[in-house]
Simulated assay, not measured.
Amino acid sequence: MVKTWLITGCSTGLGRALAEAVARRGDCLVATARSTGALEALRERYPDTVRCTRLDVTRPGEAAAAVALAESAFGGLDVLVNNAGFGFLGAIEEAEPDEYRPLFEANLFGLIETTRAALPALRRRPGSRIVNLSSRAGLSGSAGFGYYNATKFAVEGLSEALADELRPLDVRVIIVEPGPFRTEFLGRSMAAAARRIDAYASTAQGRRRYRETNDGRQAGDPAKAVAVMLRAVDTENPPLHLPLGPAAHGTVERKFAAFRADVAAWRDISIATDFDDPA
Rank of each mutant, 00 (worst) to 15 (best):
E184R: 15
V171M: 00
L162T: 01
A150K: 13
I197A: 00
V155G: 12
T183A: 14
F181Q: 05
R172Q: 14
S189F: 06
F181T: 06
R172I: 03
T151Y: 00
L186S: 03
I175K: 02
L166Q: 05
D164E: 06
R167S: 09
L166A: 04
V173H: 00
E165Q: 13
F153K: 15
I174Y: 05
T151N: 08
F181W: 10
L166V: 01
E165R: 13
V171F: 02
I197V: 07
E160A: 00
G179M: 13
S159A: 09
E184L: 12
A192I: 03
P180V: 03
N149H: 15
M190D: 04
D164I: 04
R188I: 03
I174S: 04
L162V: 08
V173T: 07
M190H: 00
R195V: 11
E165S: 12
R188D: 15
N149V: 02
D198L: 07
T151A: 10
R172D: 08
I174H: 08
P168T: 04
A150D: 12
S189W: 07
F153T: 14
E184A: 15
M190E: 04
A161R: 10
I174Q: 10
I174A: 09
G187Y: 01
V155L: 15
A150C: 14
R196T: 07
S159Q: 00
I197P: 02
D198R: 14
D170A: 14
E160W: 04
V171S: 03
F181P: 02
R167L: 11
I175M: 11
T151Q: 09
E165D: 15
S159T: 07
P180S: 05
L169A: 07
G157F: 08
L169F: 11
M190F: 07
S189E: 08
D198C: 01
A191H: 08
V173N: 02
E165F: 10
M190W: 08
R196A: 00
K152W: 06
L169T: 06
A191K: 10
M190L: 10
E160Q: 05
T183H: 13
D164Y: 08
L158T: 12
L169R: 08
E177K: 06
G187Q: 01
G179E: 12
A191W: 00
D170L: 10
A161E: 09
R167P: 02
E165A: 13
T151K: 05
L158F: 14
F153D: 15
